[in-house]
Design a protein around this nucleic acid. Sequence first.
DNA 1: TATTGTTATACTCTATAACTATA
DNA 2: TATAGTTATAGAGTATAACAATA
Lengths: 136, 136
Amino acid sequence: MRDPLSELPGYRLRRASAAMLGDLARRLEPVALTPVEASVILLIGSNQGLTQSAIGRALGIQRANMAPLIARLEARGQLTRKPADGRSHTLSLTPAGHSVHDAVAQITAEHEAQLLNRIAPEDRPGFLRALDSLWR
Amino acid sequence: MRDPLSELPGYRLRRASAAMLGDLARRLEPVALTPVEASVILLIGSNQGLTQSAIGRALGIQRANMAPLIARLEARGQLTRKPADGRSHTLSLTPAGHSVHDAVAQITAEHEAQLLNRIAPEDRPGFLRALDSLWR
DNA sequence: TATTGTTATACTCTATAACTATA
DNA sequence: TATAGTTATAGAGTATAACAATA
């Protein structure tokens, strides 16, 4: 079969990303978090007290999508909202949130190690530079 | 803000892929196709007469998701199904499908050129090798 | 038995619009 | 006026399960 797509960098990027996202999602099943939820937990863990919208901006998640996401994590008792100035909330991890955070950090480290392991060492720096150029 | 995520290759991969997918989606708006629909059109254009499930396998699209996708393209008059052996259908582009195919090929080429253009020339071969290692 | 196609269904992620309340 | 948060809603993309028809 002629397959013009698999030669295309953009198509390969999509497939590679989907494959790695699937791997991460599987690894996160034990903690019952989606990749996006896990990224929020990780970022709050490194920045206690940021506002909801600051977290969203850093992760490229829109305000409208942050609201139910944060409500879900709060309902699970993994984070708390404290009013900051009347219109904004600062987010912090609860003790349960810290536990999940540590588990997520561990899972993420394993996932990332497996990912890098698939790439030839000499290709890794260029790979990271290329991704950075595409993203920002 | 401490941002441990943006250092992670897997996270960068996700953000880069999302950014490029967004660019492609915008470019495809004039032909009213989604990136996935466009990939199907491209693949059929290079392989007239493949079965629906063969296309799906090549693109990583499940049978259950191919059905409505193909029905949509058929309803637009861009492809036709012919029964192959009683249980499988072969897919071919109609004249309208060929027109869209050519437009999609053009759009895709522009998209891919823009993508590569963002990456330093010396990083491109390693980037492609790395994506290939992650995908397959 | 395995494969093809289909339907139903659900979930994740993203997007826009409109609204309230506050700065 | 601009920002923060919320609600409602929609559309892509993907996933599983179950079924009929055919190989």
